[in-house]
Design a protein around this nucleic acid. Structure first.
Lengths: 359, 1403
DNA sequence: ATATTCTCTACCGACAATATCAATAGATATACA
DNA sequence: CCAATATCTATTGATATAAGTAATAGAGAATAT
């Protein structure tokens, strides 16, 4: 059974989908199996684990995953009506130990509730090993996918959200536009704050990606990163647009959180975010210059401590070097009184009052 | 040459002010957008005389044939672009005429002639021949001066001149070019060579066809003696000499005199001016104090002292101020502060002669001080810093530096650094180019010129125009000012863009002021000459010079505005230098050792913020310094530009002539819109704005004084540092943030924590800003205590008047208003006392009752009033509960004084008493529409007591609510009894401004929330429901107003989507260039500036900034044009009303001040003012303004084409479609808008031709218009089709979770968990718990209500007006059709004259 | 040419995103110690 | 002196950036089909 062909999913969906129409879905079952085989997931995850499966959408990936690994709990979170019933009462109705819940996995609160009500009950596993009792996957293929990816990575840094249970591996379907930011290494053109954070806290692999040739001829910009970014271009597994519903560029990322290192306990992720955010504003400037955005007098103060890095640009800094900077920043007596980014504060008086009351 | 403007001014005595101003005549420069305007002359509307027999006629007829219509605005940019392209130079940073002209000016003025010479060819290409001739002469003048200095000869100049003819073909040397060199040749030490040069040049000039006498016409260049010499040398007849150089027998100038005049006229005259100043100094005090005004002495006559003490500069006799305000100034100071006022009061006891003498002396004295204030304030600030610095060092207190100490350090360091910078710039400008350097590599040499050096070559010349020390002071003051006045939308710090541009602008202003001052020297010199050299011919000559220079100034020294990118570069350079040198000592706790450590840190930091994912550059001031600022008084941080004035502002005479004497101020605050500027200049040129000028002059001539007692109370309160009324607490130390949640806390928790923290920062920052603001206000008040001050005014683009000095003026908040009262006192009289009481009631918020009750109110509260007046802070503090507490306090003082004086009626009251329009916007609408019901609601119709529209709307809304509630409407039930005036007020008010349903609902929601009477979960529905009701009620009540509003909007829509008859560039189909323009009854052209903003990045020292090119004209933002037009039109009317009233008040001798729709005068004059303002309103509205507006539109947009859609099934539409196809094949390409319009204009041309063949040809021609022919266009137009129920939302919004169920519901359901709430809920104990809990309960509730809502909403159609009737829009065939306007809505029966008897119209 | 989606939501006083890179056009020196 | 070219620079236009979407509803403009 192959979805995406006319008739399998009613065409009327297109008009009725609303925002969900942006969601690109993997709908080739065989391809999904191929990917799963390549990942050799069954070595780590066999039956005795729980699967959180966001935006199953057409449900093909979910089905393949389920069949391949047979999780003891398979929670599908699907907010969109049609997709929801498609999975619940249709295509995936027969999956054992599965629940399709019509909630939006975009919302943090959902996870709290799911945990509270025991939809999944993962073990807490120490941070020296991957937590194999829980696997997280989802098709975050709307424009917000990038945001979610970014936040998921941040969650690894904080070890909060589902990452509080241990190092939870995540298989994330995202668009090329989201993927390419996450996979860059130092000195690569797309190196930025996100990829720096990724390289500090996770091992990330591009498992599969759309074939860039499918997007070449279009004059639109869609999918051009598939071509431009080597990591995507050289993905181990390629698939065609015809393998997707809503025909868009798609990338599967395999995110494995790194083990917890000693320095993590000293440094607040809040500080790391601050440092990264500010340094990456001028990625091509030498640290000598860019470090000044960290606060008044930063250059002079850090000269003696980080001077050996001053000739490097932010763009060139390696994870270890970032850690070095974090550590020095941590003990800087003159750091700014707060590290918040005050942008986007159109707080009107009402909200203000509410929050003030709350304090 | 135009006749002098402003000569026909009214009887307002301006004495010498006026005289001097006439010299500043406004001339539209030849370079402004050429005014190819059309003048039609429809019948004049005969407007009867306005107000009072003393009033000369004021023409308020809009359409009396004097519309300013500029049609060629759009041509220029196109041409300009082509020119720029033609230059094809790598140095293309010279982009436009403004740029090249200002750059030339800068280079020439700063003496970098070599560089200027390099730029000159580009100027030649970009500028018009006239412009270039001016620029070249400026260059020449400096060149020849240098030539003479360096070589004692002018031969280089002559060579240059010769070559110039070849270099710049098409631009012949004019008489001035020759005059410049000849005049200089006269000063060559080698007289013989000089004479040779002179005759050579003369010959050459004659060969060119010039007349010798033309050369001598440039009297400003020649001294008397030189002119004679030239004349003699060349055998010029006496008769051919300009009158100024003729010897007509009275010549008695000694050679010494003449000698003293040689050299630059300016220098000589400036010498004289000094003489005069000295003379004044010597002469003045005895004159002034003759009649025993000894108490004047402490404020000496040398303006600077006042300035210093005023700005807290050095007063040698005074000890440095403690860092707090002396809340009770010592007796001496107090006497000094009040000095002028007491004197003024006692003046009446003196003989007339002495009074006049005193007054003259006082004016003259203040004039001097005004000069000092405007020109020396920067030095004064610097002196103050220095003084503090030295004092601290003398006392050895250098451990804790105060602000001024730092500022002095920064200043000295910065000045030094700047000098380095300027040296480098000198080198670059003089040798940076044309010096080939060698290199081994192929290609261009790796020159030593770095990118930053290249930047220096761009902005360097500008930087050199102002003294480094001044640059530094301005930089510091400007940054501090911006820091305290909120950084432009950023919570912390200042937007870099704003900072660099403002600073650049400040430097430019300073330069312009200096230049102005230089030319003014000539004028003052003229005055001196007058008194000193009566019989000398030199005097006559100098008169001519002064006249020539001042008149010519506008022409010859076209001092073009510096381009924004230059401003940005200058600003950023200065800021980077300051950032580099400005350091402070900071201390902190080392997080490792726990020790207190301290270090030197930069005071300013450059960082970035992300807003919505976009970067935003921000400059931050170190928090330790910020704390200092909020602790110490603003003392020497006062920005000296645009302070209140000590003398009556210079009367307005031109678009940038008026207000301050020594700096240019724009009449209109334009929004970087070339169009606006062009129109205002043109209107000024045509003397259309006399009435506007005069109105503003009246506002500016209101003399004010600081209310000392209010000031004292305020100062006392301020010093406590505690919260008081709107003054927030003084915070110090770090913000006490809530504890950061544990690392593994939920992201939502973390987000909420961050929000709370950010909010606290925001709060802190806001209160700091507010305190700074109060600080500035206090400081200005303090500086001007006891002084007679004036607020010069200018207008916004709609004509509304604003006081120019920021911070403290009567348009400010309650506190500002409380601090100010009129300088002049007027005996109250019986009516005055009554009005005073009413005023008191008004400021207490008791303003909705009839007058008698308000008087009664004041009488009833008399004990409280006395108590407040006697012990404002230690008593019962009754005044603090007033709605305008500070003004209430002032009123208490005044009333108490009056009542306690022996004869209250004779009490000279200074308190301004207000008369406010009751919902002024609606008043105008009602008058426009002749809307009887509306007129009654806003007190246009006489009544026993004031109508309060807000209360009325509230009660009508409430009626509906009750009715609906009875019918079982659930939401209505909730709201019964809760619809207060306050809830609806804002929305009713903003309705005039075209608030949308969404906006109004948000307002009502906020108000409802404030009442706290309504459950959170119901708020939204209630607000939505109420909003529809309010809209309904308001629309019913002011139906006439809304018809007009709609009509205005429709006109704006058509205009903003229309295209002019001649389209010069291919437009994108949907972009039009036409903005809505109209003329107010006073002749002010109003141009709506809303256009698409196009900004570019410009690199600067700090960062790249994003700025727009103000000279580019972009497509209009038609949406904004439409939505803003109705309110803007109404505001242009209320502005007119105000200015008319001001005019009349001025002419009737009343002191008049206004805050848009609140008119102020002395209590005693309120009755007269009331009559005047009513008359003015009647006169304004007597004609049918809407009809006139339509007429104007029809004339202004005659020939414009509008884009309309016609029914595409019509016969005409089909034919047009075919015609277009045809045209397409004919042209062989796509048909553009331009093609079609060209076709049409071709047809018109043919039709209008005299040649019958052509006419026939035209008649035979087919265009869409000919196809439509006489068919009624209204018939063809697409009709709006109304259908019930839009299908639009039916499909939408399925992405949401099904129904309104909460996530929790769904999860429980899906997981099959029973509804019983599990007990393990407390597991996440953190700050989040509360939040989450409340969120959940909210959702549960909304779930409960859901069923009800669906039912009720469905079947209550009584309120849902039109909500399920949707306009179904169908696309028609778009064609261009001559722009027409809909018929004006019929006018109602209300006669505006009846308001003459309406007591509460303004009250 | 028609349908869908995107945007914006009250006026004025009081305008503002930035870093980096690729492509391109224009200028200028080149062959010596 | 010229021509050709290599190299350098300024200018312009494109693109990415951060990271909760708390809600509401209707018109008009922009963009996609």
């Amino acid at each position: 059974m192959k979805l995406g062909e006319p008739g399998v999913l009613p065409n009327t969906w297109r008009g009725a989908i609303g925002k969900a129409h942006q969601r690109v879905n993997m709908v080739n079952y065989e391809k999904s199996e191929e990917i799963l085989k390549y990942l050799k997931l069954n070595e780590d995850y066999n039956k005795n684990f729980e699967l959180i499966d966001c935006y199953p959408g057409c449900g093909v990936w979910s089905r393949a995953l389920h069949k391949h690994l047979e999780p003891k709990v398979h929670v599908m979170l699907e907010s969109f009506d049609n997709y929801y019933s498609w999975n619940k009462d249709g295509y995936n109705r027969d999956l054992s130990a599965s629940k399709v819940i019509q909630v939006d996995p975009y919302k943090w609160k959902v996870y709290n509730l799911l945990e509270r009500y025991g939809a999944y009950k993962p073990e807490h596993v120490p941070f020296n090993q991957i937590n194999k009792s829980l696997l997280y996957t989802g098709q975050f293929t709307t424009a917000q996918g990038g945001q979610l990816l970014s936040q998921f990575i941040t969650c690894i840094a904080y070890r909060n959200w589902i990452q509080k249970f241990g190092r939870i591996r995540m298989l994330l379907w995202v668009r090329d536009t989201a993927a390419f930011r996450a996979v860059a290494t130092p000195e690569e053109p797309s190196r930025g704050k996100l990829s720096a954070l990724v390289s500090l806290f996770a091992d990330i692999d591009v498992v599969a990606a759309s074939d860039s040739n499918d997007f070449k001829r279009q004059d639109t910009k869609t999918g051009k990163f598939l071509e431009r970014i080597p990591a995507l271009r050289n993905a181990p597994i390629k698939f065609s647009v015809d393998d997707t519903f809503m025909k868009g560029p798609l990338v599967l990322l395999d995110v494995k959180p790194k083990e917890q290192r000693e320095w993590e306990s000293e440094i607040s992720a809040h500080e790391m975010e601050y440092v990264l955010r500010n340094l990456f504003i001028t990625p091509k400037m030498q640290l000598r210059t860019s470090i000044n955005t960290l606060g008044a007098g930063a250059r002079e103060y850090f000269e003696s401590r980080l001077g050996h890095l001053y000739d490097k640009t932010t763009h060139q800094l390696t994870p270890d070097e970032f850690v070095e900077i974090f550590q020095e920043f941590k003990v800087w007596p003159y750091k700014p009184e707060h590290l918040f980014d005050l942008g986007e504060d159109d707080l009107d008086s009402r909200t203000k009052r509410d929050i003030i009351q709350f304090i | 040459m135009l006749p002098l403007t402003a000569t026909a001014r009214s009887a307002v005595t301006r004495g010498r002010l006026l005289k001097s101003c006439r010299l500043f005549n406004s001339k539209t420069s030849a370079l402004s957008v050429a005014g190819a305007y059309q003048t039609h002359s429809p019948p004049m509307h005969d407007i009867p005389e306005i107000i009072g027999d003393r009033s000369p006629r004021v023409d308020i007829s809009t359409n009396s044939g004097k519309l300013v219509i500029l049609t060629d605005l759009f041509d220029r940019p196109t041409e300009g672009d082509e020119e720029v392209d033609a230059i094809s130079s790598r140095n293309r940073y010279i982009r436009n005429r403004n740029h090249v002209a200002s750059l030339m000016d800068a280079l020439v003025t700063s003496g970098h002639l070599k560089r200027a010479d390099i730029i000159l060819p580009q100027a030649h290409e970009i500028l018009s021949p006239e412009e270039f001739a001016l620029v070249r002469n400026d260059f020449l003048q400096m060149f020849v001066k240098k030539d003479l200095e360096d070589h004692k000869s002018v031969s280089y100049s002559i060579n240059w001149l010769q070559s110039s003819v070849d270099r710049f073909p098409g631009i012949p040397l004019d008489s001035k070019s020759y005059a410049i060199i000849i005049a200089t040749a006269c000063r060559m030490p080698d007289l013989l060579r000089g004479n040779e040069h002179i005759s050579d040049l003369m010959k050459q000039y004659k060969k060119q066809g010039g007349l010798a006498k033309d050369i001598l016409q440039h009297v400003e260049l020649f001294t008397f003696r030189d002119a004679r010499r030239v004349a003699m040398n060349l055998d010029i007849d006496e008769e051919d000499l300009p009158a100024d150089f003729r010897t007509d027998g009275s010549r008695s100038a000694s050679p010494e005199d003449a000698e003293s005049m040689s050299g630059s006229v300016t220098e000589a005259l400036s010498k004289m001016q000094q003489c005069e100043a000295q003379d004044i100094l010597n002469r003045l005090p005895p004159d002034v104090f003759k009649s025993g005004f000894d108490s004047l002495t402490p404020v000496d006559s040398h303006g600077i002292k006042l300035l210093r003490s005023a700005l807290k500069g050095v007063a040698a006799s005074k000890r440095p101020q403690l860092p707090v305000y002396a809340s009770n100034p010592d007796a001496d100071a107090s006497r000094e502060d009040e000095g002028f006022l007491h004197l003024e009061e006692q003046l009446s006891l003196l003989p007339d002669e002495d009074q006049t003498k005193y007054r003259d002396a006082f004016e003259s004295y203040n004039m001097d001080r005004q000069l000092a204030l405007e020109t020396l304030a920067l030095e004064s600030a610097r002196e103050r810093w220095k003084y503090d610095y030295e004092q601290m060092h003398a006392r050895g207190e250098v451990r804790v530096k105060n602000i001024n100490h730092y500022l002095w350090e920064w200043h000295t360091a910065m000045t030094e650094q700047l000098q380095e910078e300027l040296k480098r710039i000198d080198l670059l400008l003089d040798y940076g180019t044309g010096k080939p350097s060698k290199s081994k590599t192929r290609g261009a040499p790796k020159s030593a010129v770095t990118p930053s050096d290249r930047a220096r070559m761009r902005y360097g010349a500008y930087l050199k125009l102002v003294d480094p020390a001044k640059l530094s002071v301005i930089t510091i003051l400007e940054l501090l000012k911006m820091h305290s006045s909120g950084g432009g939308g950023v919570t912390e710090g200042i937007r870099t863009t704003r900072a660099v541009l403002n600073l650049g602008r400040a430097i430019e202003m300073e330069y312009n002021s200096e230049q102005l001052l230089k030319s003014d020297v000539v004028q003052t010199g003229f005055r001196a000459t007058k008194s000193m050299l009566h019989s000398v011919p030199e005097f006559k000559r100098s008169l001519a010079v002064a006249k020539r220079i001042t008149e010519g100034k506008n022409l010859s020294s076209w001092r073009p505005e510096w381009p924004d990118d230059i401003k940005a570069e200058i600003g950023s350079t200065l800021i980077s230098i300051l950032m580099h040198v400005a350091r402070i000592t900071v201390s902190a706790v080392d997080p490792v050792t726990g020790q207190q450590v301290s270090a030197i840190a930069p005071a300013f930091t450059h960082t970035y913020q992300y807003t919505g994912g976009l970067k935003l550059g921000v400059l931050k001031l170190h928090r330790d310094f910020v704390n200092k600022i909020s602790r110490e008084p603003a003392s020497a941080m006062l920005h000296p530009q645009q302070l209140p004035m000590l003398v009556k502002p210079k009367p307005w005479v031109g678009w940038n002539e008026g207000a301050y004497y020594y700096s240019k101020t724009a009449l209109m605050r334009t929004k970087d819109s070339a169009e606006q500027t062009a129109y205002i200049k043109e209107a000024c040129r045509r003397n259309d704005l006399e009435s506007v000028y005069e109105g503003l002059d009246v506002l500016g001539s209101a003399a004010w004084i600081i209310n000392t007692r209010v000031f004292e109370v305020l100062a006392k309160v301020w010093n406590t540092g505690e919260e008081f009324l709107e003054i927030p607490t003084r915070y110090e130390g770090d913000i006490n943030f809530p504890l950061e949640p544990p690392k593994d806390a939920d992201p939502a928790v973390r987000r909420d924590w961050a929000r709370v923290c950010k909010l606290m920062i925001h709060e802190r920052r806001t209160s700091h800003s507010q305190r700074c603001d109060v600080n500035y206000k206090l400081e200005i008040s303090r500086a001007f205590l006891g002084e007679r001050i004036f607020f010069p005014h200018n207008i916004d683009f709609r004509g509304r008047a604003y006081a120019i000095p920021p911070h403290l003026n009567h348009l400010g908040n309650d506190m500002c208003r409380g601090l100010l009262m009129f300088w002049e006192g007027k005996p109250l009289g019986e009516r005055g006392l009554r009005w005073l009481k009413i005023h008191l009631a008004n400021v207490c918020g008791y303003d909705k009752a009839d007058f008698q009750s308000r008087v009664q109110y004041a009488d009833d509260k008399i004990q409280e009033i006395f108590d407040s007046a006697d012990c404002p802070l230690d008593g019962r503090r009754w005044w603090m509960q007033a709605s305008d507490p500070w003004q209430c306090l002032a009123a208490c003082f005044e009333l108490a004084d009056a009542l306690r004086s022996p004869d209250p009626y004779a009490f000279r009251s200074r308190l301004p008493v207000h008369q406010d329009g009751t919902c002024n916007g609606l008043q105008h609408y009602a008058a426009l529409g002749g809307d009887i019901e509306g007129a009654r609601q806003v007190n246009l119709e006489p009544g026993d007591k004031p109508q309060d529209i807000y209360t009325h709307v509230a009660s009508r809304v409430h009626d509906y609510v009750k009715q609906d509630a009875e019918n079982g409407h659930e939401v209505a039930k909730i709201l019964v009894g809760k619809v207060s005036r306050k809830v609806v007020k804002q929305s009713v008010m903003t309705n005039v401004y075209g608030v949308t349903y969404i906006g109004a609902r948000a307002q009502i929601l906020g108000q409802l929330k404030d009442t706290k009477q309504i459950d959170e979960r119901d708020l939204w529905r209630c607000a939505a429901y109420l909003t529809t009701l309010v809209f309904k009620v308001v629309r019913n009540l002011f139906n006439g107003a809304h018809l007009i509003q709609d009509w205005l909007a429709e006109c704006a829509k058509r205009i903003s989507k229309s295209v002019p008859p001649t389209v010069h560039s291919d437009l994108k189909p949907n972009s039009s260039m036409t903005s809505v323009i109209w003329t107010t009854p006073l002749g002010l052209p109003v141009v709506q500036p809303y256009r698409e903003i196009v900004r570019k990045q410009v690199g600067t020292n700090l960062q790249s900034v994003f700025i727009s090119d103000p000279y580019a004209i972009h497509p209009v933002n038609s949406r904004k044009q439409v939505t803003a037009f109705p309110p803007n039109f109404i505001h242009s009317l209320d502005a007119t009303h105000m200015l008319l009233s001001a005019l009349a008040c001025g002419r009737n001798g009343l002191t008049f001040a206004a805050v848009h729709d609140s008119y102020w005068t002395h209590a005693a004059d309120i009755d007269r003012m009331n009559a005047i303002l009513r008359d003015a309103f009647i006169k304004l509205h007597e004609g049918d303004l809407v009809a006139k507006l339509k007429e104007e539109f029809e004339r202004r947009y005659a020939g414009y084409m509008q884009f309309i859609e016609i029914d595409n099934h019509s016969r005409e539409a089909k034919r047009i479609t075919e015609w277009r196809k045809e045209l397409r094949t004919r042209l062989g390409r796509k048909v553009t808008v331009r093609d079609e319009i060209e076709e049409e204009s071709n047809r018109k041309e043919l039709l209008n031709s005299n040649d019958p063949i052509k006419r026939a040809e035209g008649a035979a021609m087919m265009t869409p218009l000919s196809i439509i022919g006489n068919t009624d266009i209204e018939e063809l137009k697409m009709k709006r089709v109304y259908t019930t129920n839009g299908t639009r939302n039916a499909v939408k919004s399925t992405e949401n979770e099904s129904g309104e169920k909460t996530s929790e519901e769904i999860i429980r359901e899906t997981l099959g968990i029973p509804d019983s709430v599990p007990t393990e809920r407390q597991e996440t104990a953190s700050i989040n718990d509360n939040l989450e809990a409340s969120e959940e309960t909210m959702e549960e509730h909304s779930l409960d209500d859901e069923v009800d809502e669906q039912e009720t909403v469905e079947d209550t159609d009584s309120t849902a007006i039109g909500s399920n009737i949707k306009v179904l829009k169908m696309r028609g065939l778009g064609i261009f059709y001559p722009l027409t306007f809909p018929p004006v809505p019929p006018k109602g029966a209300f006669d505006v004259k009846t308001l003459r008897n309406s007591l509460y119209f303004f009250s």
